[in-house]
Design a protein around this nucleic acid. Structure first.
Lengths: 191, 191
DNA sequence: ATTGCCTATGCAACTCGTTGCATAGGAGGA
DNA sequence: TCCTCCTATGCAACGAGTTGCATAGGCAAT
C-alpha cells in the first residue's frame, strides 16, 4: 500500500487538510493515484498516530474548522526508505480491453458509442493537461528540481493520453468495420 | 467488479479449469486484468451457483482431477448486458509516478536504478508482445471477428509499451541531470 | 532418500476499498 | 421558505483483494 506515501508527497509539496487532500486526489494527483475521502481520513489518523505528519487545528470563519496536516521528519525518513524499495507490480484493471474482447461474443456495434464516450473524455483530459502545462510551467528553462520532476510526470500523462486517443481511434475503426460486415448475419456464423 | 466478466470472456474463448484460468491471468489476460487463484476459485464457485458457467469433472492420469468450466447461456446473456453498461472509471495506481515526485524531497539519483529495472521489464514485455503477434497473427489479412478484436487489444498493449519506454527514457534523462546538478549540495538548498 | 517444483483445489484471517449515512453551518437560487 | 450544494469530518457495514497455509499425488534432480 502506498496511499500513505502519495499523501506524504502531497503534504510535502503543500500542507493541507483531509478535505483539501481529497480534492487534490480528484484533480492532479488523482490521475496516477485515486483515493476517496474515507481512505484519506483513515490513513491521515494512522499517519498522525505514527508521527509521520503533524496536525494543526485551524479555525475558519464562515466554514467549519479544519485540521491542516504537514509532513514531519519521521514521515520524510519513511518516504526516503520507501523510495529505495522496489516498486511492486502494478495491478492493471483495463475494463475496456475486456469489453473489446467480449464484443466478439455479442454485437461489436454495441460498443461503439461507449468507446466514443471514452475517446471524448480522454481528449478532454489531454486538453486539461496541456492547459495545465501552459499555466504551471510557462518557462521550461527555469525549473527547479521539484518542478522538473512534476513536469516529467505530467509529460508522461500527456503522452499516455495521446497514445490512448490514437488507440481508441484504431479500436473505433475496427468496431465499425466489424459492425458493417456483421450486419444482417449472426456473428457466430463467421467465427 | 468485472472479474466475472473477464473470466467469462476467457471461458468463451476457451474452456478451462480454475488453475488454467489462473495461469492465463498470469500471462495474456493478466496484462489488462490481474487476479490470483484465490479470487478465481471463489468467483468460479459463485458463477457456477448462478448458472453462468457449467463445470465438468475431468480425471487425469499422473495429475489431480480438475474441474473444467465452460460458459453457459445465462453467462453469455449477462456478458451481453454488461457490455451495454457504461464502464466505470478506472482506478489508476501508478506507483512509479508517485516515487518520481517523491524524489524531489530526497535524492533523485536513488531512483535511477529502479527506473532502469522498470525500463528493462517494459522492453522485455514489448518484445514478448511483438513475438506473440508474429505467432498468433501471422496473416493480418485473414482474421475473423474474434481475432480482429484480440489483435486490436494487443496493438493497444504494444503501443502502451512503446510509449512507456520512451517516457522512461525521458525520466532517466531528467533524473540523471538532477543527480549531476545536485552532487555535493543539498537538494533543498535549490528548491 | 530427500528436496523441491508442478498441478489442482481450497480454508481462514486480514487488510484495503467502497457505499451509505450522519452531522452541521453557510451560501445561493427558485 | 425550502431546496440544494459546498465545506469538513467521521462511523459502520460490506465486499474485494491479499497472504499464509493445507492437502495430495507425481516428476525430476541431487
Amino acid at each position: 500500500m502506498a496511499l500513505e506515501h502519495a499523501i506524504l508527497v502531497s503534504l510535502l509539496e503543500q500542507p493541507g487538510s483531509g478535505y483539501e487532500l481529497a480534492r487534490r486526489f480528484d484533480r492532479s494527483i488523482g490521475r496516477f493515484w485515486t483515493a476517496t475521502h474515507q481512505q484519506i481520513y483513515r490513513v491521515l489518523r494512522r499517519m498522525e498516530a505514527d508521527g509521520w505528519i503533524a496536525a494543526e487545528e485551524v479555525a475558519q470563519d464562515g466554514r467549519p474548522d479544519k485540521k491542516v496536516y504537514s509532513a514531519a521528519e519521521p514521515g520524510r525518513v519513511a518516504l526516503a526508505g520507501w523510495l529505495r524499495e522496489p516498486v511492486e507490480p502494478e495491478t492493471v484493471r483495463h475494463e475496456l480491453a475486456v469489453k473489446i474482447r467480449a464484443a466478439a461474443f455479442d454485437d461489436p456495434g454495441a460498443l461503439i458509442s461507449e468507446v466514443e464516450r471514452h475517446r471524448e473524455s480522454h481528449a478532454a483530459l489531454l486538453a486539461r493537461y496541456l492547459h495545465g502545462e501552459q499555466r504551471d510551467f510557462p518557462d521550461l528553462s527555469a525549473l527547479d528540481a521539484r518542478q522538473d520532476l512534476q513536469h516529467v510526470v505530467l509529460r508522461g500523462g500527456i503522452e499516455y493520453e495521446r497514445m490512448t486517443l490514437a488507440w481508441l481511434d484504431d479500436v473505433l475503426t475496427t468496431l465499425r468495420r466489424l459492425a458493417d460486415e456483421g450486419r444482417g448475419q449472426d456473428l457466430d456464423d463467421r467465427v
